[in-house]
Structures are given as C-alpha cells and as structure tokens.
Design a protein around this nucleic acid. Structure first.
Length: 111
DNA sequence: CGTCTGACAATAG
DNA sequence: ACTATTGCCAGAC
C-alpha cells in the first residue's frame, strides 16, 4: 500500500534527500526510482536546483550522478562549495568526483 | 497555453 | 571504449 502524498514530486525528492546520512551520497536515478519515477532522474536534479529555496535545507551536495560526479556543483554558487561540504563529512572528492563512490553510496528508501 | 529547459540515464553507433 | 542521440516529465517563461 503506497502512502499517497499530496505533496509535489519535488517535495518527495526533498524528503528522500534529507534522509541521506552524513558521509554518504546517492544518485539521481536511485532517488527517481525510489519515488517510482524511474527514468525521470532529470526531474530529481531539477528539483534539487530549486531545493535551495526549500523550507528545511536539503543536503543536495550529497546527491551526485550515477558516476559520482558533482554534476550540480554549479548550483551551489561556488563550484568548490559542494566538494568542500562532502569532504567536510568525510567524503573524499577528487576532480569533482566522489572517491570510492560505491562505498559511500547510500540506497534511498521511501519507507 | 505552447515551448524550452534541465544538477540524468540508458541505448545505439 | 567513447561519443552522440533519445527518452523522461515537470517547472519556468
């Protein structure tokens, strides 16, 4: 039984991203799938872009693409801010890419 | 109300 | 293995 949410797709993404623990990262596709919108991975990224104006701060810096690349670093204002945030949590980032991505990968779960 | 864009992903060449 | 193209669909203009 799926818990129907009246909130928009964006808010569903926000809530999921907020569940990402520190030192962990996830991919857009993983989030899209968890929301049942597999294939709409672009929407996830689009939601993150507007996530900066979400009420509770969304750790968008913990969300990267499938290869662990900081594709959204541009949205943080500073291209290095996203990397610094990740490194601050213990996530090693080199060349705008998460080191040992599979090890720090966090599997999203709606429930 | 129609069109374009977008922090991706998967497939084909 | 790498590059190019298509699909996805909801927000922004």
């Amino acid at each position: 039984m799926e818990t129907k949410r009246d909130h928009s797709f964006f808010e569903q993404v926000y809530q999921l991203v907020r569940q990402i623990p520190e030192g962990r990262v996830t991919s857009y596709g993983a989030i899209a799938r968890a929301l049942g919108n597999a294939g709409s991975s672009r929407m996830v990224g689009w939601a993150m872009r507007t996530a900066h104006m979400a009420k509770p701060p969304v750790p968008a810096h913990r969300v990267v693409n499938r290869i662990g690349m900081l594709s959204g670093k541009r949205a943080f204002g500073s291209s290095t801010l996203m990397q610094q945030l990740l490194e601050n949590e213990g996530v090693e980032v080199v060349d705008d890419r998460v080191v040992n991505f599979a090890a720090v990968f966090w599997a999203p779960s709606t429930g």
